[in-house]
Design a protein around this nucleic acid. Structure first.
Lengths: 241, 241
DNA sequence: CAGTGGTCTAGACCACAAT
DNA sequence: TTGTGGTCTAGACCACTGT
């Protein structure tokens, strides 16, 4: 682990444990340099990590402060940079029911989103995910068979992401998401136990590996009363587009 | 504008205009140093901005590549780091109808989210926003009167954010959001012209000024068929919490 | 081996705010 | 004037990749 990251971890620990609590002020950068025996650039890089996560903010001429956290966590939620799927964010026992599992030929839409050729092989997986036997989400997954080989029902019953990272030794680094509300389809009503007038929260996602390859295109439809998406946004450096 | 930001702008321009298109490879960092006559750290900081936005990715030992963009924009959408509200993201003519505009005493919930005291004065604004006379969103806003003085109906009919930035000379820097689906309330049905079985996409937001002060707590309820939230997430540096 | 990006240094000067 | 964070330099060494 690089030094700036371990410094960030340590400062984070001091924030959450209350060491830096009084008045919200964090020691100035030169003081932190001395304490951690490093250059100022390294301290700044560590603090940058915390700024990006909305944990601290800086004021030129003043100092660095702890950010007031306005929200409490009141539902199961998935954050901006959560990429490892449902299994990791859930607290209880996660169970999956496989509704469909087959290999398709990519149609034009799937091919475009996965950046592969039309008629390339894609895994097509439809699963319902439960926490403590309560249905939370119904997930439609498309994955290029060439990139994610050896998928089995056992893996789908556990965690695809764990398989990709521990078995295939691939690294998941980023994702693009679109979040929208939708009426519950008949499938939603059936598997999520929803009434016809109850909506779902849909997350459409494209997920990338470290090498820039897209390994997943998916639609996750969540129960509207059990799930929310959380996001922190900064506007420090705006690029014109 | 700092040098690293203008370099990032220039590289972004070359990506979108296709100058760097072939094979997706961007010149190596030392080459960019020479071209922009700067140190390597400055080039890296410029490229970091583009990485954070999901426009490029790097592979050690290989180079820097343009990221395949999987999504097309097919609705009005608000991104992760969009903080300036509805007026800026809309393309057509934005119009507002003020349903309610008053000064309240903060109750416990509002006070906690705005980080003020119970019974402090808060503006309470309820507006419907239209684009080309089509209703898009109904917005409930709470703002501390001490921080945003001089609010008028004229301002509410235009843009609160523009008033805050141009008149009050305050800088909006970040926001925390929660995004969820909900059934349409009677108010939603009435003002967004929704049927009882049609849902809304709700965004609950806390918005911060540069000085760390919370200036807004709001609920925006969007028509489910006209709006989506977009997000790009990275997982480079994980902090344990 | 050479070429790439990742981290880190030990300074420098600037911009902003309080005293 | 002092102290804060913001930017930038000119290097150094390391880690990973392909030849």
């Amino acid at each position: 682990m690089p030094k700036y990251q371990s410094i960030a971890e340590e400062i984070l620990k001091r924030i959450t444990s209350g060491v830096y609590k009084e008045s919200g002020l964090i020691p100035d950068e030169l003081t932190l340099c001395k304490e951690f025996v490093c250059s100022r650039m390294t301290v700044k890089k560590a603090l940058d990590l915390l700024v990006q996560r909305g944990l601290i903010y800086r004021k030129r001429g003043h100092g660095t402060f702890i950010m007031k956290q306005g929200f409490k966590k009141d539902r199961l939620n998935i954050a901006n940079r959560d990429l490892t799927g449902f299994s990791k964010v859930a607290n209880g026992t996660v169970r999956s029911k496989i509704i469909e599992f087959k290999v398709d030929f990519a149609d034009e839409d799937i091919a475009q989103h996965l950046n592969i050729k039309v008629n390339d092989h894609v895994y097509n997986v439809l699963r319902v995910r439960y926490i403590d036997d309560e249905p939370y989400v119904i997930e439609q997954n498309y994955m290029p068979a060439a990139i994610i080989p050896g998928l089995t029902r056992d893996i789908l019953n556990a965690s695809i992401y764990a398989y990709i990272e521990t078995e295939l030794k691939l690294t998941i680094t980023s994702s693009s998401k679109k979040i929208r509300a939708d009426k519950a389809s008949e499938l939603d009503q059936q598997y999520l136990r929803l009434e016809p007038d109850e909506p779902v929260l849909e997350i459409e996602q494209i997920a990338y590996l470290q090498n820039g390859i897209i390994f997943e295109y998916s639609f996750s439809r969540h129960r509207y009363d059990k799930f929310e998406f959380i996001s922190f946004g900064l506007r420090n450096k705006r690029l014109s587009n």
